[in-house]
């Protein structure tokens, strides 16, 4: 398929996690308890990417 417009509300989890985890503003102060960073979610992301690749391969 050549080109596609994908609505954001059906957007893939990969694109969503990329935005909410890697971008978005980091606002830190004395009252900050935690903020996600990419290192913390690496295990999740690896699992996700592996499953996405498997689905992609199934589509072939």
């Amino acid at each position: 398929m050549t080109g596609a417009v994908v609505r954001a509300d059906r957007v893939s989890l990969v694109d969503l996690l990329d935005r909410v985890l890697a971008r978005g503003v980091v606002l830190t102060g004395d009252v900050t308890l935690s903020i996600a960073d990419v290192d913390l979610v690496r295990v999740s992301l690896n699992a996700l990417l592996t499953s996405v690749r498997a689905e992609f391969a199934d589509d072939r």
């Binding site: 909410v20 978005g24 102060g29 900050t32 960073d37």
Partner: peptide, 23 residues
């Protein structure tokens, strides 16, 4: 809108208000 990074967790509302003031 300024979206915050996922899992931005703070102690309490007063702390968040102070952060808004500071930044």
């Amino acid at each position: 809108v300024v979206p915050l990074r996922l899992a931005s967790v703070y102690r309490d509302d007063a702390g968040v208000a102070a952060l808004l003031a500071e930044r």
